[in-house]
Amino acid sequence: MAKLGHEWILRLGDDALVLAQRLSEWCSHGPALEEDIALSNIALDLLGQARALLTLAGEREGQGRDEDALAYFRTDREFSNALLVEVPNGHFGDTIVRQMLFDQFALLRYEALAGQSAEPEVAAIAAKAVKEVRYHAAHSAQWVVRLGDGTDESHNKVQESLNVLWPYTQELFEDDAVSQACAAAGVLPLNASYHARWKEQVLAILEEATLNCPETSALLTGGREGKHTEHLSYLLAEMQVLQRTYPGAKW
C-alpha cells in the first residue's frame, strides 16, 4: 500500500506548528481572561498535533530527524505551511477571523484523513485532531458571529480583517505534484475537493455574522514551496533562538 510522502505530512505539521506559535503570542495578552485561556489552549492542541505529525514526517523521511530537529533546525525556505497561518495576529478580530478560516479547512482535511484506512498512523493522529478542531471551529465561528453582528465598530473591524485575510485562503485548496501523487495513490483527496464544502460553511458563518464575502481575485500563495512572507522569519527567529544558540539544550 502506498504511503504518504513525508512532505505532505510535514505540511500538516507545519500548518499546526506555525499557528500554534502565533496563537501562543496571545498568552497573557488576551482581551479577557477566558479568551487568553482559550487561545492558549487552542495553541496547545495545535502544538500537540504538530509534534505527532513532525515525528511521523521525520520517521518517513528516514534521515534521523525528530520533531525538534524539524521544528528548530529548518530555515524559513524549508517550512511548508500555508501563508495564512503565518500572518501576524493583529487585533483579536484579525486573529479570530484567521482562526475561523483555518479551522473550517482543518476540520474538513482531518475528517478526510481520519477515514484513511490505508494510512493508519496518519488516521489516528487525524481522528484525535478532529475532536479538538471541532471545539476550535465552534469557538472561532461563535466569535466571528458575535463581532460581525455586534457593534458598528466591531462589525467594521472584522469586515476589514476578512478583506485582508481572504486572498490567503485560495492557497489552502491548491494542489501540486506532492498532493496529486497522494491523491493518485488513493491515500487522500485533492485539496481542491474540500473547497466547495469549505466555502459553503464559511459563507453560512459570514451570513449569520452579517459580513460580506470579499470579491477579490487577489491571490497570495507560495508557502507550500517555501516562499513565505517576511513574517515567518521573525516568528522562526523567536521560536528557534534557544535551540540555535544552545543546540540540544534540555530543561
Binding site: E34, E35, I37, A38, N41, I42, L44, D45, Y135, A138, H139
Partner: peptide, 8 residues
C-alpha cells in the same frame, strides 16, 4: 463561561 478551561 468558556469552552476552554484550566486545562485542555
Amino acid at each position: 463561561v468558556s469552552p476552554f478551561g484550566s486545562t485542555a
